[in-house]
Every structure is written in C-alpha cells, then in structure tokens.
C-alpha cells in the first residue's frame, strides 16, 4: 500500500530509482527508553534528481542521513529497507557497506573544520580514499585524480599537498565534496553542508552541487533547515516533523501550494528579503520517546480535528505527485474518506 502511494513516479518511462527507502526506522537507546529519531520514512530518489530533506531541530533529518549509510553511533539501530541499485543496505555486511561508502554513495557532513585528519596532507586523503576502493591504483594516479577533483572544486593544484589547517572553512568543504565525488558516486548525501559557512560561500557551494548534479547526473539528497536553499537547489522536497515525512512533492508545487499544516507554518515562518509579516508556530516538537498518539503535529495544528489523534494519518495525494500525511485530504484515512475543515486557510 505504501509502496504504491509513496513511489513517486518518475517522468513517464524514466529510469529506475537510484535509491529506494521503505519504512526506515532509526533508533537510539536512551536512559528513558528507545527514541525513534526516524520513525517510518519512505521515499525514492531518481538519477540526477535532487531531493531536499527539510525540517527543524529534532525532526530526525540528520539521523536519516547517517542511517541511510548505516553509520549510526554505538547504541543505535536501523530497521526497514534502504535499496541502492537493488541491494538492501540495512543489515548488509560490513565489507559490502565499506564498498558502497565513498564509491557509490558519498556523504558530506556539516562541520568542515574538523572533518579532515590534521596530520595528513589533503592529497593523501585522496590517495587513501581511492585506494580503499581500487587497491591497485598507483600513488601517482591517485594523486592525479585527486588534483583533478580539487580543480573541479576550484582548489588550485599547487595547494593539493597542504595540510588541512592551511585551508579556510569554505575551502575545506570544497575539499570534502571533492573527496566525495572523486570516485564518481551515484548519490551524494549532503547533511547541512553550508550551515557553518557564510552566505556568499554557501551560494558558491550550492552552485557547485548544482553543477555536479546537472553535469554528471549524480543524485543529491540535501539535508537542511533552510527552506531558501531547498527552493534554489532541489527538484523535490520532503518536509520532516517528529521523525516522519509529513509532505513530499515537487518543489515548485509544495512551495506555492503547501498542503500539510506544518509545511504551511514553516513556509510562513521563514524570513526572507520579501517578508512583510512575522509568523511563528506555537508550541514545541513532541518527545520522541513517548510520541503523542495519532498525528504528531496535532497538538500544534491550527486545523486539528477530533479524530486526528486516533491514528497516524496515511499519505493522501491532494495533487498528482504531491503527498501529505494529513486528514484534511482524502486518502489519509484508512478508508479513503476526508473531512476537510470549513475555515479559510491561514494567509501566508
């Protein structure tokens, strides 16, 4: 049932998805009990497509990025299915995961300042990464590949042998991206790649990611809290709240006509150069050790109805290709009915 609804259709006759995620759950063990930071997430990603995963702190988006590559910290557990080119990564053996990480999927993290070994030259990082997947590569060849990837990121070849502390934050992030793409992966997962950077550098990095996507049809999952970035860089957007995706669809559709009340609230709260009025959402996100019953946004939702707390809503499809887990729309109930509210929507 989920499969049929969630499998966002590719352009007619289009290629198979690069990534298929079904009912992904990522849990941490806490003194108070299990905390499901990601609680039943499903989506597809097609080649060359860029998906923005957006949400505020505590929604589970960063955990999701790590869970996809089974990189949870000790005490964490992952359930569900993550299919990359047909192979399920959940429960895969360590050698299989090692092979995929860095070669088929690249992960770019948030804090570039601490992501490189301070005792190793940048060029040696490349040699290490390349040889981890192609052991026969000569040092010379690996260094040449590294220089080419760096040049693509705007880092001059004369600086390839410098140590990490000799580079600024923006340049280190470019190095991280270069390290990610040197083996031509099918998919890049970027977790808040520009949050620690200034706005101009951020724009430069986003341009780079965009160019990468267009030129080499690499898939991109961009995890961020910044809606502006998603609007500028992504084809589709998935909005996360309390460990679940509450809305997913084409970015133009979702931004111009958001369906889920949380999406509406989030868009309204975003301060941009054209903001005329301030808007905020009352309340705070729920505790994920004991989440509230039914729809998790119900306690804060301006459109809440009596039955919203009965059961978790299924995905309705108010517009083709746009899914929202909300009882306002037909399909969210198990029996397919909808009970829309009569009041007008909140003006944006």
């Amino acid at each position: 049932m989920t499969d049929h609804v969630v499998a966002n259709r590719a352009p007619a006759g289009g290629p198979e998805p690069v990534l298929r995620v079904r009912e992904l759950v990522a849990e941490y063990a806490t003194p108070r009990g299990a905390l499901a930071a990601v609680d039943g997430v499903s989506f597809d990603l097609h080649p060359g497509e860029s998906l923005g995963l957006v949400g505020e702190s505590g929604c589970g988006k960063s955990t999701l990025g790590r869970a996809l590559l089974q990189l949870m910290p000790p005490g964490g557990a992952v359930r569900g299915r993550v299919e990359l080119g047909g192979r399920d990564l959940v429960g895969a053996s360590l050698p299989v995961l090692r092979e995929i990480r860095g070669k088929d999927v690249a992960l770019v993290f948030q804090e570039p300042m601490t992501r490189l070994d301070p005792l190793m030259r940048v060029s040696d990082h490349f040699v290490e990464a390349i040889r981890a997947h192609r052991p026969g590569t000569s040092r010379r060849e690996a260094r040449a590949m590294g220089r080419a990837a760096l040049a693509q990121m705007g880092i001059p070849p004369t600086r390839a042998d410098n140590y990490p502390h000799e580079f600024s934050g923006g340049m280190r992030q470019r190095i991280m991206i270069a390290l990610g793409i040197v083996l031509r992966p099918q998919l890049i997962i970027a977790d808040e790649p520009t949050t620690a950077l200034d706005v101009i550098v951020e724009a430069q990095i986003l341009d780079i990611l965009d160019a990468l996507r267009r030129d080499s049809s690499v898939g991109l999952i961009l995890i961020t809290h910044n809606l502006g970035i998603v609007a500028e860089t992504c084809d589709r957007v998935a909005v996360m709240y309390a460990g679940k995706i509450v809305e997913i669809g084409d970015v133009r559709q979702v931004f111009s006509a958001p369906k889920h009340p949380y999406t509406k609230g989030l868009l309204a709260s975003t301060i941009s150069l054209e903001t005329t009025r301030l808007h905020s959402i009352d309340g705070t996100p729920p505790d994920l050790v004991t989440p509230p019953p039914g729809c998790r946004y119900a306690p804060r939702c301006p459109f809440v109805m009596a039955h919203c707390t009965d059961a978790v809503p299924l995905y309705a499809e108010p517009e083709p290709g746009q899914l929202a887990a909300c009882y306002l729309y037909p399909g969210a109930n198990a029996d397919g009915r909808a009970t829309p509210r009569e009041d007008a929507e909140v003006a944006r």
């Binding site: 706005v199 724009a203 502006g228 609007a231 500028e232 941009s272 150069l273 054209e274």
Partner: peptide, 26 residues
C-alpha cells in the same frame, strides 16, 4: 549586491535569477 544576490529565496520560481557572486572567501 553580492550579499543580496547570495541569499537564497524560498521561491523556486526565482531560482534562475542572475547572481553575480564574488570569487573566493573573506
């Protein structure tokens, strides 16, 4: 001007606007 151009707008319709970004960093 660069700062203003660089700010991402939460409006996908405007994403292809002309942005003159300066090279390099501070």
């Amino acid at each position: 001007r660069a700062l203003l151009d660089a700010i991402p707008l939460p409006d996908p319709g405007r994403r292809d606007r002309d942005k003159r970004l300066p090279r390099g960093e501070v």
